[in-house]
Each structure stands twice: as C-alpha cells, then as structure tokens.
Design a protein around this nucleic acid. Structure first.
Lengths: 258, 258
DNA sequence: ATTAATTCCGTACTTTTTACGGAATTAATT
DNA sequence: AATTAATTCCGTAAAAAGTACGGAATTAAT
C-alpha cells in the first residue's frame, strides 16, 4: 500500500509504524480453473489497490505481510513470497490525499510537510490460496474488497497493476522450481484437476501426457486405488501429495518445467 | 544501509530523505579470477557494512541505488539489480547509535523517540564490475572502504553478511539467464578468460569443452582471427562480444546454464 | 449396442546435457 | 633440430530430458 487509506487514523497511531515504507500483498486466489486477485477500493478514491498495510516497529517485514494478509483473508500460515520493492516519486501523485482533503473529510489538520505526503516504498509479496477458503473482509475505511480475474483488472491506483504483473511473473517462475497445490486442491484430487491448476497459473495449455509424465517423475504425488465417478466417461484415478517429498521440494526445490 | 553512519549530519539534512527505508548496494568486483565485495567501516563501529545510503524524496529507489553506487565507485551506468528487501526489529540493536553516544560524539541532542532509532528497511541491489575500474572513495564519516574476498568477509554489521550471501545467490541465478562479462573483460578476450570468469562467479569448475560449446551456441561472442601470445604454449584465439546479440540477451534473456 | 466425453498408456523422435580422449600449438630447454 | 611442459581446443559417444502424437479404455446416457 502506498498511501494510507486510513490516513487520519494513521496519524493518531502513527507512532507504532515505520514511516515511508509499507507492505503490499498480491493475494492470488484459485478456484475452478480461474485465477483471481483480491483487491480493495478505498473510499477516498475510485481506483482499486492490492492488499496493503503498514509495518509495526516491533515486527519484521515478513510478520507485517503475514498480519496484513490475515486481516483480509482470515488465513494464517499463508506462504508469502517477497518478489520486489517499488518506489518512486510518482507514487505520491493522484493519491487522493492532500492536507485540504483530509481536513474536509476528518477535520484533522496535518501540516503539508508531514512524511505521510512523501512517497512510500512498497515491499511486495504474493501468495496463492484456494479462494473459497477466504473470508474476505474489508478494512474500516475501505468501500469494498473483492476478487478480480487477473485478466480483467479494474482501474488500479499508481503502479499496482504493474505490481500485480510482476507478482504473476514471479509466481510463474516460482512454480517451475517448487511444488504448489497443497493449499489449492482437495486432499484427494485427479490428474486433470492438477493439470488445470498448472495451465491456469501458467496461462497456457500443457500436453496432458507429458504433464503427467513430468509430474509423476518428481514423486511429489502418488496414485491411489480409488477413482472418482464424475460423468459419462472414464472415471479418473485419485492422487494425493506425498507430504514428505512435497516438504523436501519446498525446501530444496523440484524442477517442474513446462 | 541500516543505520546512518553519519547520523548527526543526517538529522540536519533529514528533510530531503525518506524515513525508515534505505538502499544497500552489494558491489561485487571481479579481477584476475577473484571475486570481491566493496565494504565500508563506519567510525562508530568496529564492524563493516555494504555500501548503503538514504533515498531522496525526489528520486526513485533505482536512482538512489545508482547515486549511492556512483558516490563510492565513481562509476555511472552500473547495472544494478534489485534482489530483495530486509527488515526486522533486530536490525536496530547493536548499531552503535544511541542518543547518549551521539551527544558524546557530536554534541547534538536527539530525542530517543526519533525515527532514526527505529529500524530501517533495506532495499538491496547488487552490481558487478571490474574492480580496477573503481576509484574507491570512502564517505566522510567512514574509517575505511575496501575490497574483501567474498569467501573471507570481516565481521559484518547486522544481517549484512546474510545480504551478501543473498546477493551472491541472486547473481548466480542471474548469470544462467542473462549475459555478463561486457564490463568485466577487456574488449578482446580469450576463451580461458571468460571461462575463469564464470568459474569464479559460480564458485565451481566447469568443463572447458562443454563451456565453450554452450557459450558459442548463444552467439553472444564471436571469434577473431587474432591470437594472444602469452607463454610457452598454444596461443589462444581472441573473441569479442557481439554487441547486438549481447544487448538482445540482456533484454530477452539467454539461457546459459552450467 | 451405440455414442460422446474423457482419461491415460505408450512410443518414436529430437534436443540438450554430460563425460572424456587426444591432437595442436608455443617457447624454453637440451 | 628434437624434446618437453604447459595450455588450448576440436570432436565424438552416450545418457538424459523434452516434444509430439496415436489410439485404446472407461463411463453413462441414449
């Protein structure tokens, strides 16, 4: 987040936060072959923002990212990956906050030399979750908070569209080297399901036979004896993640290049 | 940089800088099969730091990184790559700055609630240069500024050793996808020279025949008719970078995996 | 029994990666 | 002029990884 959506309240409590630096989380949600991103709309602006917040003086940037993600999703233990930081003087323009505007809205008088009118460096993280798990909750000073398809974003504040694109690039690089899916698929899932997951995230189609071959080679999933009856066609076998191999893959990496 | 080496002067001029966020540059230098890193030692501390500085309100973080690198190396147009940001409350401990200490040294009285005593988020970049090109200049309040072998670092402030290790990891990933060497080798160079460059940066030996094969496949270097007589053995042919292919590689990437 | 939708086994081919053998060149020395 | 030591670098063979498809098997509705 670049500009405090809740600037006036922020000024009251500002002592607990670092100045001129904040965290932005690009929260991706996957559900039934769709990739979405959770965005908020502040009252003060007709544009949308990624999920941001300030950093407490007593917490690390990773802890801040985690807390901020929890506040909007209700989820703990999200895997948050830092992918870049963004900062330039243009970020401060068109923010919807000027001393006059704040006085109009809240009655507070903030001197125009206050650091809240200087630009904020955004330290940015992304995460990926099953979006039906999320209880999206908006902040007090936000008009709305909702999921948007990554391919059809609304008008975004500042460079937030750029930040989302960078997050998606980083995610796509990431899944070539580390396993994903544990938080996104049911405990038992079919090959077509995990196949669609990879296709959706990568934004391209993958040969089903070669996909299966490479996936099974990593040993991170194992085949069960059960099948799932889902229509007038062959019933797909169920698979599940091999927790041990999966954890090892998260640590040491697993090549899974498509 | 996490803690202002020149805190008192900083307080005077602080209005031009962002608060609680700063840039650190890990400046790698290559010369004759050695990889070094440029470090500074503040007077106030017996530990060493990577090359850091503050961000002006009027400049982007990339511009800040560039300016800070220029101030210590005299080099413009360095390729500075952002590889991560670091921030946690531990960064503020053992920094060598307390209100008492500053008063002792400078006579200034700074309230202990000032933001300069809160932690700084470090937005970190690395760069790589031929180190004989660098005119290392120390800042006014630094005791010393010099090159250290990456494998034999002195005691470092905070997490700066960690930052250097992360920079080196990022550099090693980077050179698998983008060409390097243009700023590090003479205009005309031999295969063994560029071979050593890659071995040094990657910290492992590479089969010379396979190295050559892959390198030539990318077409970023081209063979000249000249050789260089350098001893009682076969004279190696000279090569030079194909500027066009090299530039294209910088933009679009060139796989060069060892 | 037929049909449509889907799953998934298997194979052939191409490209990339890895591992080495050994010949060629240079200049000092014998 | 032959020998020697140091180094450069050409080339090949085998293994591994990646790519492209054909077509058979299964399910349930008709």
């Amino acid at each position: 987040m670049t500009i405090p959506a809740d600037a006036t309240r922020f000024v009251e409590y500002s002592d607990q936060f670092l100045k001129n630096v904040a965290v932005d989380n690009v929260i991706f949600g996957y559900h039934e072959k769709e990739l979405k991103v959770l965005l908020q709309q502040p009252y003060t602006l007709d544009k949308w923002t990624v999920t941001g917040g300030y950093i407490k003086k007593t917490e690390s940037i990773e802890q801040a990212a985690s807390r901020i993600a929890f506040d909007r999703t209700g989820l703990k233990d999200l895997y948050l990956k830092q992918f870049g930081s963004f900062g330039n003087p243009q970020r401060v323009i068109d923010k919807g906050f000027t001393p006059q505007r704040i006085k109009e809205i809240t009655g507070f008088e903030i001197p125009s030399t206050s650091w809240i009118f200087d630009y904020f460096v955004s330290v940015s993280f992304y995460t990926l979750t099953e979006f039906s798990k999320v209880e999206s909750t908006k902040g007090e000073l936000e008009a709305d908070s909702k999921w948007w398809p990554v391919s059809e974003l609304p008008p975004m504040m500042f460079d937030h569209e750029h930040i989302i694109n960078e997050a998606l690039s980083a995610l796509r690089v990431h899944i070539a080297h580390f396993p994903i899916g544990y938080e996104l698929l049911p405990e038992k899932f079919t090959l077509p399901e995990i196949h669609s997951l990879y296709e959706t995230i990568l934004g391209k189609s993958l040969d089903d036979r070669n996909f299966t071959k490479k996936l099974l080679l990593t040993k991170i999933v194992s085949k069960l004896d059960e099948t799932r009856k889902i229509g007038r066609h062959r019933s797909p076998f169920l698979y599940q993640f091999d927790k041990e191999k999966y954890e090892e893959g998260l640590k040491s990496g697993v090549a899974l290049v498509f």
